[in-house]
Amino acid sequence: MKDNVFSARRFLNVLRKEIAVNGRTLLLLALGLYMGLTIVMTFGNMMFSHSFEIPVTLLANVVVYCIAAFVFSIMASMAFSGLKTRGGRVDLLMMPATALEKVLVQALVYGVAGVLVFLLCAQLADLTRIGLMNLLVPTAEIPGPINFLAFPYNYAFGVSNYDARISFGTMLTMALAASMATYFMGAVLMPRYTWLKMMVVMQAVDIVIFVVLILCGRWMNATWLHYITDVNHVDGVGWFFTVLAIVQAVVCAVLAYVFFKRKDVVTRSVL
């Protein structure tokens, strides 16, 4: 019975197959990412090295995290590439493994491993920046290696007096996880042009939520607006949105599994 849910041996076979089939593409993407980040960081260092108003390290962290949010959503959208074509769907659905094993492999490769590879590329690009700056503009201000992992956790969100200060890093991590899980779910539902379609869907959802909140604010006489913008409540609001992000991440991940398990080789019309 347990063997029909999860088997480590099968999981490794599925993982091995995924890497064998798509590993080369992923390696080339990682290489492209490293080169792109190197260019951005080196260029940024050159442009802002004499600016005392914007610290280079802070700017580098902000830029890298903005790029990270973009790249993570694209990586999550690349999951389940086998679902794009009928032949690919037959291959993926007929693979002798459980749906859980197949989904976990996708989450590992296009989620966890993707994040780790991005961070590695960012650190390598940063070290390359130092080398290139010393070579090209040795007189410029060249900050030392930047620890991208530490940056968001050095800033707390909220100014309340009690201990439950939520770090910016926690909020950011959960927000990124929620975003990735949503695009991951989108990769199962809409295998072709996933990132574009999910962008449109999420923008539409954001607009609806925004309109609803504004309307609610008017009905409640904008009390909630005063509440969340009060500095004493910012900490609680930060925790609220963090928990919301966690729930979104979990729900989307579970839905991705459920939708994949119910996937057929041919999508039937709803009507």
Partner: peptide, 14 residues
Amino acid sequence: PSTLADVFVVPEEF
């Protein structure tokens, strides 16, 4: 998995 390991499909398009 036990069933999938006992069935093989060669589709028209693969």
